[in-house]
């Protein structure tokens, strides 16, 4: 491996260890929830990554539609996949949290509901991409869909919030104030998570690009060989 890769991995490893230390040892338990609050560092940070990833998918989709360069499409595709994984994390950690704090694995809380809808929306995005063979068309369709889905997310969240507003809301964050140490921990986990996202996005994009290039080159080689055979044959 190259030097920058070692540096990157070491940095990542250190970040992870520090984050783990901050989460579980340095930061205090919360007054009412106790140690359960520690899930939050993981949960909220995952959510931030998921939203960022989908936002970037939508943005890069538009860039692709305008500039028509494959790299944007490849990056958008990879970003949606990462976002999907982190949305799953959010749902799982949210359920664990819910069970511990509200004594229920699932509730139709606005944020939870939106996250679940988000999960379905991008599941469809990935399936849509995978089921269209024409590369140009798949990229365009996915860009348009990604953009519309991203526009719809705030609308969905707002409407679900209003919806809950009418019905009794079991979840409140009232009386939840964070001591500075908790704030630092939360901030640090944001940094680590976003850094992790950036690294995975970057490597995966390069891989996606290389894989596409490889397939193109193989095709070229096949054509060139055919031409060569033709010439020798005639």
């Amino acid at each position: 491996m190259k030097k920058w890769q070692w540096t990157l991995i070491s940095l990542l490893g250190i970040g992870m260890i520090v984050s783990q230390y901050l989460d579980f040892i340095a930061s205090p338990p919360e007054a009412q929830m106790g140690n359960v609050v520690r899930i939050l560092y993981f949960h909220v940070a995952s959510a931030i990554v998921a939203f960022t990833a989908f936002g970037i998918t939508a943005l890069l989709g538009l860039v692709f539609l305008v500039r028509k360069q494959w790299i944007w499409d490849q990056m958008a595709r990879v970003s949606a996949e990462i976002g999907m994984v982190y949305t799953t994390f959010v749902l799982i950690s949210g359920s664990i949290w819910g069970d511990a704090v509200w004594n229920t694995w699932w509730t139709w809380d606005p944020t939870l509901t939106t996250t679940l809808i988000l999960w379905f929306l991008y599941l469809a995005y990935i399936l849509l991409r995978a089921s269209i063979t024409d590369r140009e068309r798949a990229a365009k369709v996915a860009s348009v869909y990604g953009f519309i889905a991203a526009i719809d997310i705030p609308v969905i969240h707002q409407s679900v919030t209003w919806w809950r507003g009418i019905h009794p809301n079991v979840i409140t964050m009232q009386g939840f104030n964070m001591p500075p140490m908790m704030v630092y921990t939360l901030m640090f986990s944001f940094v680590v998570f976003l850094g992790l996202y950036a690294v995975i996005l970057w490597i995966s994009t390069m891989m996606a690009k290389d894989r596409d290039d490889l397939n193109d080159l193989r095709e070229l080689a096949r054509n060139a060989l055919a031409k060569y055979d033709e010439r020798v044959g005639s």
Binding site: L121, A124, S131, T133, D134, V141, I156, Q158, V160
Partner: peptide, 22 residues
């Protein structure tokens, strides 16, 4: 959008319901 998708019969409902929740 799903015009040339090989999964369109299942994809359209899968996209339509989440998108029209509000």
């Amino acid at each position: 959008l799903a015009l040339t998708s090989s999964l369109r019969e299942i994809l359209v409902p899968l996209m339509i319901f989440p998108l029209s929740v509000p």
